[in-house]
Design a protein around this nucleic acid. Structure first.
Lengths: 249, 249
DNA sequence: TTATTTATTGCATATAAATGCATTATTTTC
DNA sequence: GAAAATAATGCATTTATATGCAATAAATAA
């Protein structure tokens, strides 16, 4: 009996019974339990089933819920963005780009802050729509699906008319020479417009983004007012950035 | 019996009865209470339930998550909106208003439909952003927070320039004399613009919205092309609506 | 074809997990 | 506060798993 046949048998059996037991399969297929276990491990690593002690069960369906956004290293991001909370004041006009760091930031904005926030990120807008005192303006346009942000001329047009006190820009990559750079061209354009429209430009990111580069330039370091990472502002990895004149929080 | 099965049993039982009792489970599953306790502790540490003295109870709703939108009577809504799926065709330009019925509709749009959809509802945009073949355009503006939709002149301006094949309008209330009516003035204006912009106007709602009234008029029945409820199209409760010439699905 | 490599399988062994029991600690109830 | 119920802990036993090894089968190269 070929391995492929066995795997098929196992998967059929699994659907039938919601589970398979190693010893039963060994008996039914007249093979050693070792082989069955190896099969189960293989199927498990292909995510076709879930190996458990004594056998295997069906993979529980991935919540399939569009609305729960996974944030990697959320704790680290909380640590970063909480430093930036001091930059917020009542009556500011704020622009926020997308990105999970900014999303974490949005969650932590104090409930009593009264401000106007422009954003073009769906998750951030969802988050801020729960905020009692924020005037929230969503910048419409064509959706870029994976990032859940709007892009394109519509966005640029709106952004370029805003007179903002401060903007928070997520960063794909940053380095000394090229400054902020982005994976996508469209996003880079929008961010340029954001910077143009804001008195103060803040970028928050984890230190692993330092000294990396993406294809599309956004701005050089001199155009950034403040950067925020999880590092101590005096950390030597930030030395060169400090020299460039950007304020490090 | 595999541990995974047991855990599943326990969780099912927990949902059924709101609680589980260690001794009962031990009896039902023919295992020592020790094992049950170990199971409960394990599930507790995974935050799937809360261990208490003598057994376990359901973990209290966190629901602090902005992103899980509660949809009441989701099954009924699925039933309604699935009737309307036949109205969808490739290459249509579609406008969708907000509302949980439309959200359910968005979830059910077939993955292979190629169309352009305009919406001003955050949850609907989130949902559709998962769709591989939909060109999605979000209509920006000031957010009305509780409804998670944009409103105002910005929205009207964009909507009035769309040439749509079909629009799907959620309904607060509908009756024979006043037609569609809305709670909020702003929303009513936006819906008027949607109707103006669309060749075909569809409204989906549960039958309990029939013969009710809200302060702000949207349109009369003659402007609606199709209405969809959970009722049989021949149901007598729809008699008067049928006479008005609207198509009932 | 033959020689060589690569996969598959079963077995032996060491390790790990699960379970129940006895004992002790803790919590609840009265 | 005392009695009863429930939990936690260590330990022994059973069962399942991983791993290296050898035998065999299958695929590949020469």
């Amino acid at each position: 009996m070929l391995k492929a046949e066995r795997h098929k048998y196992i998967m059929t059996k699994l659907i039938e019974d919601q589970k398979v037991v190693t010893t039963d399969l060994a008996l039914a297929l007249d093979l050693s339990e070792d082989t069955i276990r190896r099969d189960l491990n293989e199927l498990d690593s292909k995510k076709l089933l879930e190996k458990v002690y004594g056998g295997a069960v069906q993979v529980k369906e991935k919540s399939a819920n569009v609305f729960d956004i996974a944030i990697t290293a959320e704790e680290q991001k909380k640590q970063i963005v909480s430093k930036a909370l001091s930059l917020l004041h009542d009556d500011q006009v704020i622009i926020m780009s997308g990105g999970s760091t900014n999303l974490v930031f949005a969650k932590l904005i104090p409930a009593d802050l009264k401000a106007t926030i422009y954003t073009y990120s769906l998750p951030i807008a969802m988050q801020l729509s729960q905020h009692p005192n924020i005037d929230l303006i969503f910048i419409g346009g064509k959706m870029q699906k994976n990032a859940m942000v709007t892009i394109g001329m519509d966005v640029i047009q709106v952004v370029s008319k805003i007179k903002a006190d401060i903007c928070f820009i997520g960063a794909s990559s940053i380095n000394i020479k090229q400054g902020l750079t982005e994976v996508g061209y469209e996003i880079s354009i929008v961010k340029k417009a954001m910077i143009e429209a804001s008195d103060r430009v803040v970028s928050m990111f984890a230190s692993n983004k330092l000294n990396t580069k993406m294809p599309h330039g956004v701005c050089d370091l001199t155009q950034l007012d403040t950067i925020v990472t999880e590092l101590d502002p005096e950390d030597e990895r930030l030395d060169e950035y400090r020299k460039s004149g950007v304020f490090i929080l």
